[in-house]
Computed example of a mutant assay.
Amino acid sequence: MQLQNPAEIARHLAELRQEHRDLDTAIAQLASSFGYDELQLTRLKKRKLLLKDAIARLESKLIPDLDA
């Protein structure tokens, strides 16, 4: 998906941030449960890192390029 419009980028960024917060909550709940699935926890953490990278890329698109 190629986002160019700053409004589209901001909307998608908000969705990714919400998913990132939701994953943070899910990870905390899973880690605090007895006998949790280590593989599932690892997958959630990996997804969270991928979201963090996607958020950083979109945030950099919102910063205007300045000619030096």
Results as ranks from 00 to 15, higher is better:
Ala56Val: 08
Asp37Thr: 14
Ile55Val: 12
Ser60Asp: 12
Glu8Met: 10
Ala68His: 15
Ser60Pro: 05
Leu58Thr: 12
Leu50His: 06
Thr42Ala: 10
Asp24Glu: 12
Leu3Ile: 08
Phe34Thr: 10
Ile63Cys: 15
Pro64Glu: 05
Ile9Asn: 13
Asp65Glu: 09
Ser60His: 05
Ala26Tyr: 03
His20Ser: 04
Leu50Gln: 04
Arg47Asn: 10
Met1Ser: 02
Ser60Lys: 12
Phe34Leu: 09
Asp67Arg: 15
Leu51Gly: 06
Ser32Gln: 06
Ala31Trp: 01
Leu16Asp: 03
Leu50Lys: 13
Glu59Lys: 00
Leu44Glu: 06
Lys52Arg: 06
Pro64Thr: 10
Ala56Ser: 13
Gln29Arg: 14
Asp67Pro: 07
Lys48Tyr: 00
Lys52Pro: 06
Ser32Thr: 08
Leu58Ile: 15
Ala54Trp: 00
Ala54Thr: 09
Asp24Thr: 15
Leu3Val: 15
Ser32Phe: 01
Ile63Gln: 04
Ala54His: 02
Gln18Pro: 02
Ala54Asn: 10
Leu23Lys: 01
Gln4Pro: 05
Leu66Asp: 11
Lys45Glu: 14
Thr42Ser: 14
Leu41Lys: 09
Asp24Pro: 05
His20Asn: 04
Glu19His: 05
Arg57Glu: 07
Pro6Cys: 11
Leu23Thr: 04
Leu16Lys: 00
Glu15Lys: 12
Leu51Glu: 02
Gln4Met: 05
Leu23Met: 12
Asp53Ile: 14
Arg11Asn: 14
Glu19Met: 08
Lys45Met: 12
Ala7Ile: 12
Met1Phe: 09
Lys61His: 00
Leu16Thr: 08
Ile63Phe: 01
Gln40Trp: 03
Leu44His: 04
Leu30Glu: 05
Ile63Thr: 14
Lys61Glu: 06
Leu39Ser: 07
Leu41Gln: 13
Gly35Asp: 12
Lys48Glu: 05
Ala14Cys: 09
Ala26Val: 14
Leu13Thr: 13
Thr42Gly: 06
Gly35Met: 14
Glu19Phe: 00
Ala28Gln: 11
Ala26Gln: 14
Ala56Met: 08
Ala54Lys: 11
His12Gly: 04
Glu19Asn: 08
Gly35Glu: 10
Phe34Trp: 06
Ile27Val: 12
Arg17Tyr: 02
Glu38Trp: 00
Leu50Trp: 03
Leu58Ser: 04
Ala56Leu: 15
Gly35Pro: 08
Glu15Arg: 13
Gln18Leu: 07
Arg11Tyr: 07
Ala10Arg: 15
Met1Ile: 09
Tyr36Lys: 04
Glu38His: 11
Arg17Phe: 04
Gln4Ala: 05
Glu38Pro: 13
Gly35Leu: 10
Leu23Cys: 07
Ala10Asn: 10
Leu58Gly: 07
Lys46Asp: 09
Leu13Asn: 12
Asp22Phe: 02
Leu58Glu: 05
